[in-house]
Amino acid sequence: MEVIVESGAHAIAVRVADAVCELLRRKPDAVLGLATGGSPLPSYDELAERCAAGLVSFARARGFTLDEYVGLPPGHPESYRAVIDREFVSRVDFGPGAVAAPDGSAPDIPAACRAYDDAISAAGGVDLQILGIGADGHIAFNEPGSSLSSRTRIKSLTRQTRVDNSRFFGGDVDAVPAHCLTQGLGTISEARHIILVATGANKAEAVRQLVEGPISARWPATVLQLHQHVTVLVDEAAATGLELLDYYRETLRLKPDWQGI
């Protein structure tokens, strides 16, 4: 696990965009894992600007989103399908149908979840997964207590997650669905490279647990300690709980230029 501390969200976005662009240069038909939420948005903005400038193309790439609410009507503006289309997919040159999302309105939820994992496998697996992290250590919608080997499935959202997300539903907690479909921790862990982005002091404890805490379902993101290629990109505020911060800075300073992230 590599920890990189940047000055702020823009510097992190440049790092993420550089990694995506380098991947697509080497492998134009790469498979990307796309997170929703606030953390990845600056990275999507940076990538959209580069695509508009002709510096990168997604024309041959594919994408899979992490999660979706259960029970929202088709086309609801706060479905994660709609959000990723609005914030990223529609702003770059993905081909039609190139980005898939879990089907939260499927009549057979377990079958839809199995089919989603099968679709990721059929695409060759995810080359680069972009993640955020919740203040309680959740990634995707794998809330505390989630199995570290879990697959795509239905999950009940915690009250705090629904409170946090109520800002997208006019402040009405009861309007936030109580259930979601989410890639499991086992599914996410199969991505070949994972980039996790965290900004702000409210993420400091989650980042500390992720990087330096014990592996535990209490902090689901800690499963990433077992992954061979994870890059954690944080700002100064999110890094305040890290005991080995000086070491992470020194490691980055001494890193060979050819190694990348």
Rank of each mutant, 00 (worst) to 15 (best):
L210H: 02
F168N: 13
I215Q: 13
V207W: 02
R153D: 03
P177M: 04
S189A: 14
T222K: 07
F169Q: 09
K155V: 15
S216I: 04
V234F: 03
G170W: 08
T222R: 00
A175V: 02
A201I: 10
S149D: 15
N165V: 10
A221N: 03
Y247D: 15
R208P: 10
E212L: 12
Q225R: 12
V232A: 06
E236C: 06
R167E: 13
A206P: 01
G184C: 03
A175Q: 06
S147L: 02
H179I: 06
L245Y: 00
L226T: 15
R218M: 07
Q225C: 08
E212R: 05
A201D: 07
V207R: 00
I215E: 14
R162P: 06
T240N: 12
A221E: 08
I188L: 13
A239H: 00
Y247F: 12
A204M: 08
L226Y: 03
L185C: 03
Q228P: 02
A198N: 03
S149L: 09
P177Q: 06
T187G: 08
L210Q: 05
I154S: 14
R153W: 04
S189P: 09
V197W: 11
P220L: 10
V173M: 06
L185D: 02
E205R: 11
V207Q: 04
T240A: 15
H227L: 04
L224S: 08
R151M: 12
R151T: 07
Q183F: 01
V223Y: 06
V176R: 01
T251Y: 09
L233F: 05
R162S: 05
D246R: 11
A237Q: 13
T152Y: 00
G186C: 04
A191Q: 10
S147A: 15
L245R: 12
S146F: 08
N202R: 14
S149T: 11
L185P: 04
L210V: 02
P220F: 04
L226M: 13
I195S: 11
T187Q: 04
E243A: 15
F168S: 14
E250P: 07
K203L: 09
I194A: 07
T199S: 12
L210R: 03
L233R: 07
D246Q: 08
D172S: 10
G170F: 03
R218V: 13
E212D: 10
P220V: 01
L157K: 00
E243I: 11
R159C: 02
K203D: 04
R153I: 01
V163H: 06
S189E: 00
S189H: 11
A204S: 14
R153H: 12
I195W: 08
A221V: 10
P214L: 02
T199C: 11
T158G: 04
R218F: 12
S149C: 14
T182D: 14
Y247H: 14
S147P: 13
I215A: 08
G184L: 03
D174R: 13
R153C: 07
T240D: 12
L185Y: 01
L148S: 09
G145M: 09
S147V: 00
A191W: 03
G213D: 03
V232I: 12
G213Q: 13
A217D: 08
R218W: 10
L224P: 04
R192H: 09
E205I: 06
V234M: 09
V223F: 08
R192G: 00
F169Y: 10
C180K: 05
T251R: 15
T231E: 07
